[in-house]
Nucleic acid binder design. Structure first.
Lengths: 152, 152
DNA sequence: TTGATTGGTTGCACCATGCAAATATAGGGA
DNA sequence: TCCCTATATTTGCATGGTGCAACCAATCAA
């Protein structure tokens, strides 16, 4: 071991960023009939259709919770529910055209927001930050040798 | 304008990291008598004593909510409540010794966790990531020219 | 002293969540 | 083919956390 690296600063910054992003998100305007829990669902469905149980797994929520959330989105017309042709018990959920429109707009708003926010960052900084953030996400997703869990 | 930078990738990674951090935190063991809402309060009080209303502002929660959370922490012995010498209506909340101990341990766990997680990152990568994350937090905290809000 | 203001707590209703029971369908043996 | 068990989903119910509003207590200005 050479010398201990200062992970404390990194931890602090992570907490700070998460907190600030949370605050920023709370300010964001929401399309009619949607609450914040809807976005994860719509984004996941945007990648590909899912069954309720798969969706629940993906979102880390209980199936019953997702079932209710989805019911709302179906009622609002953002999600289509079709019986699974292969399994009469299951339903296949997919984005409706207006659901697709919603996430397109959301993505657009996010991009605009980031553009303004990062106006005086250099392209190089942005690229590096994106890369490292991705690497960090990869590390989180697939912890190689880790054993412990975080706090706050 | 030279060429549009790909903020979409950055947005995606941000969402991904937040989501993964959230999942990781959900796994973390909690000291007796604490729930996750306690940590922000303890950390804020760790910096300096606060009154209930200031705490509420800091946490972005309603005063009544904070009042109840604090009551629990006082009951559990992590927070001391003293009448404000300058204002008989107000209380001054501060960390008790065991409260201080809790956040010391939490910080320690977080550091250990990060050490394991980043075991095969180079010191340089870690340093750069920390710096850029800090810069991003600064930008979020003090948006220079921005107008819009994020999504998801 | 009184009235208006501010700090804090408590009553109440609301909403989201998870567990468990209920329903419906699959699918694998007797 | 007929059960019996397992799985997908929905719904009933209880719980917990939240914010608003009413309330109590103390301050401050007139």
């Amino acid at each position: 071991m050479v010398q201990p690296i200062n992970h404390e600063a990194l931890g602090d910054e992570l907490v700070r960023v998460v907190k600030l992003l949370h605050a920023a998100r709370a300010q964001a305007p929401l399309p009619a009939g949607l609450d914040h829990s809807a976005y994860p669902i719509l984004f996941v469905l945007g990648r590909k259709p899912h069954r309720v149980s798969d969706l629940a797994e993906e979102i880390h929520s209980d199936v019953s919770t997702v079932s209710r959330q989805v019911a709302g989105l179906v009622r609002a017309g953002y999600v289509d529910r079709a019986p699974d042709p292969d399994d009469g018990r299951a339903h296949v959920l997919s984005l409706s055209p207006s659901g697709r429109q919603i996430i397109r707009e959301a993505r657009q708003r996010r991009e605009t927001w980031l553009s303004g926010l990062l106006a005086d960052w250099t392209p190089d900084e942005i690229a590096t930050f994106t890369t490292l953030l991705g690497k960090f996400a990869d590390t989180l997703q697939n912890p190689a040798t880790s054993t412990k869990e975080p706090t706050q």
